[in-house]
Design a protein around this nucleic acid. Structure first.
Lengths: 132, 132
DNA sequence: CAATTAACCTATTGACATGGTAGGTAAATG
DNA sequence: CATTTACCTACCATGTCAATAGGTTAATTG
């Protein structure tokens, strides 16, 4: 289940991609267009800055903008950054997970196959693919 | 993220499929083989009975067994029953969800595409596909 | 009938995530 | 200096997850 963190982040990215790049776009505008609470978006957007997806600047004329060209982002990197992991099961999500049943688990191969499917789906999808 | 409910349920199904069908298998045995708390499995298994996946009978010689032939189950129906939904986003998971942005949402088509991918993956996978 | 086995039922718990809200501080610009 | 806007800290209510605990009912067997 993809939470609002990932979904809202994606919409912020799309909003920035569409509302021309070089200018800084204030969060207030994005929140209004996207009909999302600005206060809540602040939390999400902060992590997007930390993760290097976007850049922010304070003061008049400030706001947020993309750090790269829109076609240079994959949906996968955005979702993965915000959700922590794309993996569908705990044993694949945390790298350091040591399952004692790893060798005998009959379900693991399926989870691995599913994991790859998800990964490929999102990493082969560019941000710009979502814009008409 | 698939929770233990779905994952454990699947392992119970596999255990029943392998430990020959017509006999009732006590939960204690399954719990020991699968290394899962019997008490916790009780909760899960109860829902599997309610959902019609398996049948249980009390008393000596009792336990659980499949209600159909192993090759007649898809992984999809098992996971979906236990998790409530296979959908990756809230707006697709609950049928009665009325999103006001449905017509303008730029991300919805992608979620629908992803939803279909997940559904097809799990419903085209038989329980018996996981046994060797 | 009594003992045993095993499912079934109800309640509770601790930890964590989700989806926010509230209020204040720092920085940039005119 | 006033305004704008990002940034920071703290808090909270609700829900889910993953169990645990203890008791009751049902079926079989000696």
């Amino acid at each position: 289940m993809i939470s609002t963190r990932g979904r809202y982040a994606l919409r912020v990215m799309l909003d920035l991609a569409e509302n021309d790049s070089d200018k800084y776009i204030p969060l207030k505008d994005i929140a209004e267009r996207q009909e999302i609470s600005k206060k809540y978006l602040e939390i999400i957007v902060k992590d997007m800055v930390t993760g290097g997806l976007i850049a922010g600047t304070s003061g008049k004329g400030g706001g947020y903008k993309l750090t790269r060209a829109p076609h240079d982002y994959t949906v996968g990197e955005i979702i993965e950054l915000m959700e922590g992991s794309l993996s569908p099961v705990a044993c694949l999500a945390d790298k350091g997970y040591a399952c004692t049943r790893k060798k005998v688990c009959q379900t693991l191969p399926m989870w691995e196959e599913f994991d790859k499917l998800i990964h490929d789906f999102f990493y082969n999808k560019k941000l710009t693919d979502l814009i008409n």
